[in-house]
Write a protein that binds this DNA or RNA. Structure first.
Lengths: 345, 345
DNA sequence: TGCTGCTATGCATACGTATGCATGTTCACG
DNA sequence: CGTGAACATGCATACGTATGCATAGCAGCA
């Protein structure tokens, strides 16, 4: 079988059904003016010929591709898997196609990036920190709406949706304080994004308010990955005193922290050292972890993202600088002590 | 800013550069006959106008969209996240775009499915069991090459790539036998796919060869999910005797098994009960698990998949029924006893 | 100089669908 | 029965790029 076999077109269907090509086009688009009987006849003919409308051709005239580009950093963090998953489902249900695009190192990304834009995508959702500024300006230039997911560019007028990372950081600090912690450690993530920094800032702020100067918080640089965090924590706490409480700015790093402390130090969590994360990925609630963390409302954030893109009415002007900050809440599980059960042993 | 702003076309560039539209087209396609000086002049003009070739329009004439559709089941299993990730990277590097498409329940999938085909995709990669037969016949009809990833349709002539699931199941049985296990349990996955069944078959076959009748293997139905497996295992081994060895047909189920046995029964693994999985997802090697499992060579499988699609030379005929079965190997970690340390207590 | 062969270039058209416009048809209402 | 209004239909064209074909330019060679 040759691949380049000729697929039937609206003209073929028109000929078979004895109508004009316009009629075929109208038969396949809802709400256009066509008699029901004729439409049925056309659909019948189309079925016989295995006809399927060619979206490429239709995009050419309508100037709408019905394609949305989703640019992802890496999928090693399950949180972004949930985000992708939710986005794809929602867009799919809305009748859009999703062009997925990942960018790891960001160097060869530029060329690939431009390739995506060639497809006249109706919108872009961006979760990769590396090329935010460049990407937003290009899209802006070309009139393509873009939304930054869980990141923002300080001082720019790019639209974005994020959860209240600063507030979430405060919640964690609150929980630790409530549980009676005195000595704190902070495991930071990717320094290129705003997310890690914001969470850390909220955490530090709240502690400062409670009289604990930021200089007393032990900071550990990380890479937002399990392996990176595991290595750092293992190395840092190879020996010596453990802090009372460690805030890892995301769940996979928190899980790595727990694994490292348990393996290397046989640490009892939360009795000996408390741990908290951020995101509430599915793994966080599983038995070995039962991690106290801050839940990001993915569904809500995705909904807001799509609202900002307003793919439905493309003639609306693109308002720049829409920022939606959705609240997040603490999920109290077993890695932070209840203050009443003050250190049971 | 209005969204429907007019983007510049090859005619605009041609006018500015003082050449014909054809020249612009040729300037942007490698290997076409154009003087280098003129090409530079055109690229210069294009840069001034922010011109980017419109792939939609170009697809219309070339009948090649450079888009590949990837149909996924669910992303709750990290193995398929790796697959997606690898696929996207490879396709991206090759100059293709990836249209991602997920299908959970499979009922409303049909309509969405046809929408994908409207985009004249150059190929389809399918990892969702639910709609294999239907999807393959439709693609075949339309001359679109399709490859089933890690699944196949018995008796059909659809092409596919998979790892040697039967062989992998045998490897697990081998390991258990070698470690001295006598009583076996088998945790099955999604019955709709061939994957779970094949792995189970290999396992049972090998045990049968060792004199252990299949009827003596305790089978537990599962759902290929962590939560499903956790619930089943918890319920099954709420009380009573544990088997010597449990083979879960994928890693997330194996992890769930370990978590459940440890929490509900405080079971010591592997001393009291051994566990093995399949896939070798990144989580499998982490400290709480250190899971003995069968590694699927994702890179290799993806490479084979792309080879079968032969996107590069689309004029090659689509050969039906190409099946690539790549070998897999056992990764021996800590959830299966070394036979020498024969049950240290 | 005249001829051949090759490359560079432009013209014109095709790709498959959507849609503005004009016309034809139907039907309700007075 | 006449008059519109509302709807149904077809014609023709536009969307932006690729490419076959014809031609112009040029170099090489006898």
């Amino acid at each position: 079988m040759k691949r380049r076999q000729t697929r039937s077109t609206s003209f073929d269907v028109a000929a078979l059904a004895g109508v004009s090509q316009s009629a075929v086009s109208r038969a396949f688009s809802v709400g256009s003016s066509i008699a029901e009987a004729k439409r049925q006849k056309i659909l019948e003919a189309a079925r016989k010929l295995n006809y399927v409308p060619n979206s490429i051709a239709s995009s050419l005239t309508t100037k709408r591709s019905n394609i949305v580009a989703v640019v992802l950093g890496n999928l090693a963090n399950p949180f972004y898997v949930s985000v992708l998953s939710t986005l794809v489902r929602r867009l799919q249900d809305g009748g859009w196609q999703v062009l997925t695009f990942t960018v790891d190192n960001g160097t060869e990304a530029d060329e690939a990036l431009m390739r995506v834009l060639r497809y006249q995508v109706d919108g872009v959702i961006l979760t990769a920190a590396q090329l935010s500024t460049r990407m937003t300006s290009i899209c802006h230039e070309r009139g393509i709406p873009i939304v930054l997911f869980n990141r923002y560019i300080p001082g720019s007028d790019a639209s974005g949706v994020r959860c209240d990372n600063v507030g979430g950081g405060r919640l964690v600090a609150d929980a630790f304080l409530y549980a009676g912690a005195k000595r704190f450690a902070l495991l930071l993530g990717d320094p290129r994004g705003t997310t890690s920094a914001d969470r850390a800032r909220g955490f530090s702020q709240r502690l400062a308010e409670a009289g604990i100067p930021t200089s007393e918080i032990y900071c550990i640089e990380g890479h937002s990955t399990y392996d990176g965090a595991y290595a750092r924590v293992s190395q840092t706490y190879r020996r010596g005193e453990l802090p009372d409480a460690i805030f890892a700015v995301n769940d996979i790093m928190a899980m790595a922290t727990m694994d490292a402390l348990r393996q290397r130090r046989s640490a009892r969590i939360p009795d000996e050292v408390m741990v908290a994360g951020f995101d509430d990925i599915p793994e966080a609630k599983r038995w070995p972890y039962r991690l106290t963390t801050v839940r990001q409302p993915v569904d809500e954030m995705v909904a807001q993202t799509l609202e900002i893109l307003h793919l439905d009415d493309p003639d609306l002007p693109i308002e720049p600088g829409i920022e939606r900050v959705v609240p997040c809440r603490l999920i109290w599980r077993d890695t932070v002590r209840e203050p009443k059960s003050e250190a049971p042993r």
